[in-house]
Design a protein around this nucleic acid. Structure first.
Length: 151
DNA sequence: TAGGCCATCTGGTCCT
DNA sequence: AGGACCAGATGGCCTA
């Protein structure tokens, strides 16, 4: 654009006329600094790429252990987190309920009930993040009743 | 074609 | 100073 061009030409003419004299060591220092800066940026980019790849690997591992009934399409990161949350809460509920049922038969019946697909319908039906948020809120509203943190 | 999801780059902040 | 983490911007790919 014009502004860019004019400012560029201004600085150019300034250095020609009254700018500070640039010596050979100064030029070398400036170019070395730029080179160093570029090198650091590229290294940071590579580290960030590795970091994100690590994060994605973790998401893939999480997807493998989280239920995915009838969904041929892989869960998005957001969906994976939501499903993991739902799954953990369900497992936790089973554990706490199991403590209340003394006979093995009762426990097996409970186990079957909890892992039936219908229990996850609220999440699977949540297509938009807004709906998913509502579901999360519902989950958390139950969480206070069901979770007890042990030191 | 719009919208969702994702990878990458980038600059800022905090920590060691 | 350098690394880790984060959030915003951007562009590509895919699907309804």
């Amino acid at each position: 654009m014009n502004s860019y061009k004019s400012s560029e030409s201004e600085s150019g003419s300034e250095s020609e006329t009254k700018g500070p004299e640039v010596t050979e060591p100064d030029i070398k220092t400036v170019s070395e600094k730029m080179e160093s800066s570029t090198r650091r940026r590229l290294a940071a980019n590579a580290r960030e790429r590795r970091r994100m790849q690590g994060l994605n690997t973790a998401f893939d591992r999480l997807r493998k252990v989280v239920p995915q009934w009838g969904q041929d399409k892989k869960l998005s990161k957001y969906e994976t987190l939501q499903m993991a949350l739902s799954y953990i809460i369900a497992l936790n509920r089973i554990l706490s309920e199991a403590e209340r049922y003394c006979t093995e038969r009762d426990w097996i019946n409970l186990h079957h009930d909890h892992f039936h697909q219908e229990n996850y319908h609220p999440y699977l039906g949540a297509r938009s993040p807004a709906n998913a948020d509502n579901y999360t809120q519902n989950i958390f509203s139950c969480q206070h009743e069901n979770f007890q943190f042990v030191n």
